[in-house]
């Protein structure tokens, strides 16, 4: 890759919008080109300065009085809605029940469960965030983790080499992936193959939980709802829902997920 090509793609690279192989080419180029590194650092600094300026500007902040006004107004709207629902007559309730049954039947027949899938994914993401906190950060799980070798014997031979698979992930922008540990753990009744890494100086968890049916077709990593104050990115890998959880920024966490997800997907697809 030439310097001009890299600079033309720099914004898309920083936005995490390039395919993995192109990102790898950029990272390889940056390793040997100080000028481009300097240019990219300047662009990163510019974005950070803009973000900081915008989000910390007192001139742009809402007043406390306005914030309270919005909250109160929404409270009134919600209460109005509740009053209406709270005094429905029996025939409306019956009609609603019939409608509900018809809706459920239609959804079963349709055999596409997108809203349910999303809820399921959000619930799994919350479990992943909980496991990150209680296992990787607080070491406060009720059950002691077991080794991946043991998990491989008990559940799936593929788990034995999971640590090595993650270590073979490609380079990720903004730093390396240092593997701190790997094991099999259980949080709140859900099991995870868990690789704990350090990236950009923060502890992050790469979590894979076995699942009968993937809740959403996430062939590339996507942002999931934050949970417990952590950023959560999710992806699927045959028979597993995968998550990357950390307190990195949204884009940094997603970058990390976009690097490890293809490797894990390919690994489980072979399995």
């Amino acid at each position: 890759m030439k310097c001009a090509e890299l600079r033309a793609m720099a914004e898309s690279y920083l936005a995490g919008e390039l395919p993995v192989d192109t990102s790898h080419e950029i990272i390889t180029h940056l390793d040997r080109c100080e000028e481009c590194r300097t240019e990219l650092d300047a662009r990163i600094a510019l974005r950070q300065t803009l973000r900081r300026a915008f989000l910390s500007s007192e001139t742009l902040a809402p007043t406390g009085e306005f914030t309270e006004r919005v909250r109160a107004s929404l409270g009134t709207e919600a209460a109005a809605g509740r009053r209406w629902f709270g005094h429905v007559t029996p025939w409306i309730a019956i009609a609603a029940s019939v409608a509900f049954v018809l809706t459920v039947s239609w959804q079963v027949l349709r055999s596409t469960h997108q809203p349910e899938a999303s809820s399921a994914l959000a619930a799994l993401a919350a479990h992943a965030a909980g496991d990150h906190r209680h296992c990787a950060l607080d070491h406060s799980l009720e059950e002691l983790p077991i080794s991946l070798d043991e998990a491989a014997r008990r559940y799936n031979p593929a788990y034995a080499t999971l640590r090595e698979v993650v270590s073979q992930s490609g380079p990720v922008r903004g730093g390396t992936i240092e593997i701190l540990g790997a094991h099999w753990c259980v949080f709140d009744g859900r099991s995870f193959a868990h690789v704990v890494v350090r990236h950009r100086g923060r502890v992050a968890s790469i979590l894979l939980t076995p699942i009968g049916q993937t809740p959403a077709a996430l062939t590339s990593a996507a942002q999931c709802p934050s949970s417990e104050g952590f950023r959560v990115a999710c992806f699927d890998a045959r028979g597993h829902a995968g998550f990357v959880v950390s307190d990195l920024t949204d884009s940094e966490n997603l970058d990390l997920a976009r690097v490890v997800a293809p490797v894990l997907q390919s690994y489980f697809a072979r399995g």
Binding site: E5, A8, M9, A10, E11, S12, L14, A15, E17, L18, R43, L46, R47, L50
Partner: peptide, 8 residues
């Protein structure tokens, strides 16, 4: 990507 960057 070269012309498309909406950001910086």
């Amino acid at each position: 990507p070269p012309a498309a960057a909406p950001g910086a």
